[in-house]
Design a protein around this nucleic acid. Structure first.
Lengths: 98, 98
DNA sequence: ACTTACCGTAAGTCATGGCTAACCGAGGGC
DNA sequence: GCCCTCGGTTAGCCATGACTTACGGTAAGT
């Protein structure tokens, strides 16, 4: 999941889909890599559950997968909550003895 | 930022700090890599603003940086919001013409 | 049917970066 | 002062994976 977002180019691909579905060629346009490279990134993103694809005549439209987005958010929130709790505990401990 | 969380081992290091501050040796214990490897991961995490460190006598205590956590959350939320908005738009378009 | 546009896949190259081993400095206990 | 623990840094090795080139397959247009 986060593995997939580790690569900057792949993150750029992902972020390009933020505004809505795009065909592969359109995604590749403006990126400093070839179209096959984009295809490979899309495969990884799809494997991670972050994007979906749908056939549209000649082209293939990729879009952000809302499920993946929620999973990501859930992971982040959980982590954040636990970290903040232990932070608060540490602060209390500090206050109690300081 | 997300680059730093791309590596599984580094993510494991990061997640170990979720419960509170830990010295390097303690983090390395239980991980399948050597202590220097952990040190290197911590350097990257620190560079990304995800962890902080504080000297504690002989040891060095690492902990999650709440600022980094907020930055991460802000990035995620913004992305998510934009994606969901364009999703809703697409659904309306679909509904309008279907 | 021929051509053109779109795209996924395979093979091969090459740089990135994660890991270990070895070294060094700093702090604390005796 | 000596020793031991803790941990950051470096050098060097090596696997991972990102990228390009070349190819094949499908859909639309004429």
């Amino acid at each position: 999941m986060l593995d997939a977002l580790g690569d900057p180019t792949r993150r750029a691909v992902f972020e390009r889909l933020r505004k809505g579905p795009l065909p592969v060629g359109e995604i590749a346009k403006g990126l400093p890599v070839s179209r096959p490279a984009v295809s490979q990134h899309l495969r990884v993103l799809k494997g991670a559950g972050l994007v979906r694809d749908r056939q549209d005549g000649n082209r293939r439209l990729y879009s952000v997968d809302p499920n993946g987005l929620e999973t990501l958010r859930a992971y982040m929130d959980r982590f954040r909550d636990e970290a903040l709790v232990s932070f608060k505990k540490a602060a209390e401990r500090e206050g109690g003895e300081g």
